[in-house]
Simulated assay, not measured.
Amino acid sequence: MSGIARFASAPGVPAAVGPYVQATSAGGFVFTTGQIPAAPGEEAGSFEDQVYATLGHLEAVLTAAGSGLEHIVKVHAYLSHLDQLGTYNRVYERFMASSRPARTTVCVGLWGVSMEIDCIAVVPPEEDA
């Protein structure tokens, strides 16, 4: 299909653990795969460290796809415990303070990780990038 670009591996981001890419760009938007704090089997650190790492991975994937944090229009965050929300919000604010995209945050049972974040962002025109 024309008009669709797939981004398999952004620098510094854990590789996909299944048959998918880290982001797909289509129709002027980039759709990211859920990002996690560390590759499976790696030490993730404190929850605050995990939030920083996950948002850093999200930023790297967006950059590889021609976008960035400032172009996010929607964030989906999945936390494993309600008591993580305060820490998540403090770190999230540092990353998203200027853009404040729409956001959904839910607590769910995750497969061996404490959080996962995906997003939808605009791919800006070349002159705006």
Rank of each mutant, 00 (worst) to 15 (best):
D83P: 00
P125R: 13
V30L: 08
A10D: 04
V13W: 07
L79I: 00
L85R: 09
S9R: 10
V73P: 04
A121F: 14
G27A: 10
S99P: 15
G3I: 11
A121N: 14
E59F: 01
P124S: 12
S98G: 15
E59G: 08
T32G: 02
W111E: 09
G34M: 02
P37N: 02
Y20T: 06
M115A: 03
V113E: 06
G66D: 06
L62V: 09
A8C: 12
P37I: 00
F7I: 08
D118S: 12
Q35S: 07
D118A: 11
A39I: 01
N89T: 11
R94K: 14
Y78D: 07
S46V: 04
G66M: 04
Y92T: 09
L85C: 03
E70A: 14
L55C: 11
E48Y: 01
R90N: 10
H76A: 05
G18H: 02
D83Q: 03
A53T: 01
F31Y: 14
H76W: 07
P37R: 01
E116K: 09
K74G: 11
E116Q: 11
F7L: 07
G112Y: 01
V106L: 04
A15Y: 05
G56F: 03
H57Q: 01
G12A: 02
E43V: 10
T87I: 07
F29E: 12
C119D: 12
R103S: 11
V91H: 04
A8S: 14
D118C: 11
A65S: 12
L82K: 05
D83N: 03
F29K: 13
S25K: 11
T63K: 13
A44P: 05
L79W: 00
C107Q: 03
G34P: 05
A5P: 11
Y52H: 13
L82S: 07
G18S: 09
R103V: 10
K74T: 12
T104V: 10
M96H: 15
Y78V: 06
G66R: 01
G3Q: 11
Q35Y: 07
L85M: 10
G28I: 11
E43N: 10
S99C: 15
F47C: 01
A10G: 09
G34E: 06
H76Q: 08
V61E: 07
V106C: 00
D49R: 09
S2E: 15
A44R: 13
V106P: 00
A16T: 10
N89G: 08
